[in-house]
């Protein structure tokens, strides 16, 4: 400690001699810490987004995409999309998939968070075990639900028939009427632990003294829940829902693995539609336009999220 003292005293003196140059040189060196990450972001994220935007305005096909000489077509790709009934269907399916997933994973996640908010032996371990569903690679959970929802020997059919809820097994992922519901089921299973973890963090942030005061005033459990927990959980719930909206709207892999978008587009949500345009039909221009629309939608939700967060903070 003592040895550091003389040099500390020397610093201001030296700085006073050439203040400007020192700052400049230090600043440049400091930016070097950030430079690699910024370069990486520029080359692998910003440039591709820019490429995407440009492709969406050009007629990019297998012939033209490598040579980068596709003709400029203005907004024609976007007009093509808006005229495509499959695009409209994909948008609708995306909304149903997202709304269905969010409703169940948030509802069940909230109930589980309330349950795990009470202290009891083994609480932490049990809670951590639930996260396993969220951590499994999507290919694994997707294949697993394909097997469980199998029409001939799936365990879901067996359970429903034995309970008397169904007379005959169904081909859940092969029938157009139920395929989307099957993917929602799998996505809800994956999403519940994530919702629970975030909501539980919110519940644990509510001061105990509030509940004690309410109990002293004679409030019942239900009253405490309605007039304390619910309003106090509003900001957290809002961010969990909006985050969930962003994550769910872009789900691609789970659906691709379970149904590949089929049967006959019955589960072709917007991300699957985008993928098919680019990698199955090689309509790179149209694919880029669809990707841009998807991105615009997500940025819109993100802005909504920031706006809501700011409003909650202000009030």
């Amino acid at each position: 400690m003592a040895r550091a003292l003389p040099s500390t005293a020397a610093v201001p003196a030296a700085a006073a001699v050439r203040p400007r140059r020192r700052v400049r040189r230090g600043l440049f060196a400091d930016y070097l810490f950030l430079l690699p990450a910024l370069l990486f972001i520029a080359v692998t994220m910003l440039y591709p987004v820019w490429t995407n935007l440009r492709m969406s305005l050009h007629d990019v096909t297998v012939m033209t995409f490598l040579r980068d000489n596709a003709p400029f077509v203005g907004l024609q790709n976007y007009r093509d999309l808006l005229a495509d009934p499959v695009f409209h269907k994909a948008l609708g399916l995306s909304l149903i998939f997202t709304a269905g997933s969010l409703a169940f994973q948030f509802g069940i996640g909230f109930a589980l968070a309330l349950f795990f908010n009470r202290p009891f032996p083994g609480n932490t371990t049990l809670r951590a075990l639930l996260l396993l569903a969220w951590l499994l690679p999507t290919v694994v959970s997707g294949s697993l639900f394909r097997w469980m929802l199998d029409g001939d020997f799936g365990v879901v059919n067996y359970a429903l028939v034995s309970l008397g809820l169904l007379d005959d097994g169904r081909y859940w992922l092969i029938e157009p009427g139920t395929a989307l519901a099957g993917t929602v089921l799998a996505n809800v299973w994956v999403g519940i632990p994530f919702n629970m973890a975030l909501l539980l963090a919110g519940l644990q942030g509510i001061p105990h003294t509030l509940y004690e005061a309410a109990s002293v005033d004679g409030a019942t459990g239900w009253q405490r829940f309605r007039s304390l927990t619910l309003p106090l959980m509003r900001p957290v719930s809002l961010s969990v829902l909006l985050l969930g909206l962003i994550y769910t709207f872009k789900v691609f892999d789970l659906i691709y693995i379970m149904t590949g978008g089929g049967p006959v587009d019955a589960t072709t949500v917007l991300p699957i539609y985008t993928y098919k345009l680019t990698f199955s039909f090689f309509r790179f221009g149209d694919g880029a336009a669809a990707a841009t629309l998807l991105l615009v939608g997500l940025v819109g939700v993100a802005l909504l999220y920031l706006w809501a967060a700011r409003r909650e903070e202000a009030s």
Binding site: V49, N52, I246, Y275, F279, F284, L294
Partner: peptide, 10 residues
């Protein structure tokens, strides 16, 4: 926010 599927093409 960038979805993998948007990034994959470019």
């Amino acid at each position: 926010l960038l979805p993998s599927i948007v990034m994959a093409g470019p």
